[in-house]
Each structure stands twice: as C-alpha cells, then as structure tokens.
C-alpha cells in the first residue's frame, strides 16, 4: 500500500469499455440504499418544510395545509434564529480550526517519538474517539463541575482561589469554550491518525534530501510536507466542517439544552427545542433544510476554491 506514483497512472482508462453498464451494476446496491433511505426521506423533509405539519396532522387526523415559504419566513423573521445561526457558524469554525491545529500538531509529534510514547498517545486518542458523545460530554461536565469536579479543586489547591466553585458554563464564551474542548477531545483523534498516516506515507528520502539541503523544519513543512499532505488535509477539513456544524449532543448535554437564557444554542439544538420537543415538524424540517443548504454552500465553495488551485476532489 505504498504505491505513490503508480497510482497516478491508474486513472480510469477508456480502454475497457465493454459493458458500459458495469459501473452502474457495481453502484446499484449503494444507489438503491442511499436513494431509498436517504434521498427519498430527504425529499419528504423538503416537502414537510412547506407544509403545516404538527402532531395533530400526523396522528390527530387533521388535514395538512400548504404553507409555501411560510415556515421559512417565520424562521428568518425570528431574531433569535438569526443569532443562533451566527453563533453556530462561528462556533463550528472555531471547532474546525482547533481540531485541525491540535490534530496536525500531534500527528507531527507522533512522528518524532519512539514506539512507547507513540503507543500511549495513540491509545489515549483512540479511547477518546471510541467514547460515545453522550458519555464524553457528561464526563467533561463532571470534570468541570463547580462542586464535584476535580478541575476547580485542583486549580484552587494550586492557590488560584478564584476558581473555588467557579462555574465554567455561566459565561457565554466560557461555556462555548468548554464545549469546544470536548469537541476537540473527541474529534482530534480522527485528524491526528489520518494526518499521521499521511505523514508516514511521505517517502523518507524526500525529507532527507530536504534536510540535507539545510532547510529548516518549518521550511520543510511548508515546502514539502504540507503540499504532499494536501489531499489528506482536504478530507479532514471537509469532514470536520460537516461534523462540527451539526453538533448536537455536546451542546445539549453540556449546556443543559442551550445554556443560561439560551446563550449557547446552536442550530441543531435550536431545531430540536423549537420543533421536535413540541412536535412542530414543519419548522424542524425547515431548519434542517437551511442547515443542509449552508453546509452545502460552505463545502462546495471550499472544494471549488481548491479546484481552482488545481486540486482534484
């Protein structure tokens, strides 16, 4: 699995054309599953977002009525929705950047150490990765609990008496910061392991040559490593954007459903509170559609930017 150059030559060729249907045959199972269980429900979601659709319509036998863009106008007229939208975008961006920074830094660190510390860090990271989101959020909250948590006791034992019984979730930014820590904790392992794998795949001779030329570590990173890692970085960036934008569990659990007076709401949690808890399915669907469109715009915009720079997705 170390073929680097040969793979370039293995572009799909026009040589084998007998049976143009072969790829479709291979694709059939995937397309049927995705079409039936993802695209079709998605179509229904879009449909619901244009209707008046509450529990009364679902099981109460009341007729549904077409609302046009009514649900969407209601959303965008809601000042809180706009504020939550902004918070979500900023928070997701911060999560993505922090995750990428930590993951990449630790991946580089992994290449600089011997087997034992590497194994220790790898196992710890895999453990964080394996933990269910509900549990991870609960444990982090527990660690930072003003009464029962070890963090405040440790800080005040170090002489920082201001941290005695300090609440980390009261202030808006501090609460977002705490959630960000948890998000980074559970999502950096993917970045770290992937980037580490990519680093290992860079032929040692290339780096050696650069080092012999007297290039500094930073120049080697900028000039050699980063460009070769680019496809990997694209993958982890796109994945992080997708995952972090849809954050639900961490906010829901750690800020107790949106924080003091709703200061820590993100779009997904807002959708849940606004719609599902009171079964206004159409509003929830509309928020889902808006989220999808934003993600789509961000990701496709990013890929297009890369493409303009000569990358291939």
């Amino acid at each position: 699995m170390t073929a680097t150059d040969t793979s370039r030559a293995s572009r799909p060729s026009r040589a084998r054309r007998p049976g143009a249907w072969t790829p479709w045959l291979y694709l059939a199972p995937a397309l049927v599953l995705i079409g039936g269980l993802l695209v079709y429900p998605l179509y229904q979601l879009g449909l619901i977002s244009f209707l008046e659709y509450t529990q009364a319509q679902v099981s109460g036998g009341e007729p549904t009525s077409f609302q046009g863009l009514g649900n969407y106008t209601e959303l965008f007229r809601d000042a809180q929705f706009r504020q939550v939208l902004l918070a979500t975008v900023v928070f997701a961006a911060a999560c993505v950047l922090a995750t990428l920074a930590v993951g990449c830094a630790l991946a580089v660190l992994l290449t600089r150490v011997r087997a034992l510390p590497r194994l220790a860090l790898m196992l710890a990271a895999l453990g964080a990765w394996a933990t269910p989101a509900v549990t991870g959020s609960t444990v982090w909250l527990f660690l930072f609990d003003p009464d029962l948590g070890p963090v405040d006791s440790a800080l005040s034992a170090l002489g920082l008496s201001g941290f005695e019984g300090h609440s980390w979730t009261y202030d808006r930014y501090s609460a977002f910061g705490l959630v960000l820590l948890e998000v980074v904790w559970c999502s950096f392992p993917f970045v770290m392991v992937t980037v580490y794998a990519g680093l290992r795949a860079i032929p040692a001779e290339v780096l050696e040559a650069a080092a012999l030329d007297g290039a500094s570590q930073w120049r080697i990173w900028r000039g050699v490593t980063a460009p070769m890692l680019r496809p990997i970085l694209v993958v982890v960036t796109v994945q992080s954007v997708i995952w972090d934008f849809k954050i639900f569990t961490q906010i829901y659990v750690m800020t107790n459903g949106g924080g003091v007076a709703g200061q820590n709401l993100t779009l997904n949690v807002y959708a849940y509170q606004k719609a599902f808890a009171s079964s206004q399915y159409s509003l929830g669907s509309a928020i889902g559609v808006v989220m999808l469109l934003i993600l789509l715009a961000v990701t496709l915009g990013y890929l297009r930017l890369l493409r303009r720079q000569g990358e291939e997705i």
Partner: peptide
C-alpha cells in the same frame, strides 16, 4: 527541487 511544491500532476491527471 524537493523544496518547491510538487510539480503539477503530469498529463493524464
């Protein structure tokens, strides 16, 4: 050469 970004992918790519 190794210090500059990798050359643009050759022809086919």
């Amino acid at each position: 050469a190794s210090l500059s970004p990798p050359p643009p992918a050759p022809g086919p790519g």
